[in-house]
Computed example of a mutant assay.
Amino acid sequence: MEEIKSKLGKGGLVLAAMGILSAVLSIFNYNLRLLAWIDIWGNAIGWIIRILLILGGGALFFFYGSYNDE
């Protein structure tokens, strides 16, 4: 069970980092290749998806990232 929670925390950190990096790069009209689909639905929806990535990833990291049963 610890291993699953640890992986969820790391995955959340990756999601949040990708969301932040995508937000910063979109200011300069660039995007991560993996997240290029975000702007298909328009600029506003793209920003909503980026914010959800940051918040969702941050929540996963907050709840599962610092799991220590020692």
Rank of each mutant, 00 (worst) to 15 (best):
E2H: 12
E3H: 12
I4M: 13
I4E: 14
I4Q: 13
I4G: 06
S6M: 09
L8Q: 11
L8I: 05
G9A: 03
G9F: 03
K10A: 15
K10P: 07
K10H: 14
V14N: 07
V14K: 05
L15K: 00
L15M: 13
A17V: 15
M18H: 01
M18P: 02
G19D: 05
I20Y: 01
A23C: 08
A23H: 05
V24G: 05
V24M: 11
V24R: 03
V24P: 00
L25G: 04
S26W: 07
S26Y: 06
I27Y: 12
N31M: 08
N31S: 13
N31A: 08
L32A: 01
L34C: 11
L35H: 04
L35R: 03
L35M: 05
A36S: 15
A36F: 06
W37P: 02
W37H: 07
I38W: 04
D39T: 15
W41C: 08
W41A: 13
G42S: 05
A44G: 07
I45K: 10
I45S: 08
G46Y: 04
G46K: 05
W47P: 00
I48K: 01
I48G: 03
I49D: 10
R50T: 06
R50H: 03
I51L: 14
I51H: 01
L52H: 02
L52N: 00
L55S: 13
G58M: 01
G58K: 01
G58C: 00
F61Y: 15
F63S: 05
Y64N: 00
Y64H: 04
G65Q: 00
S66C: 07
S66F: 09
Y67H: 09
Y67S: 12
D69V: 09
D69H: 09
E70D: 10
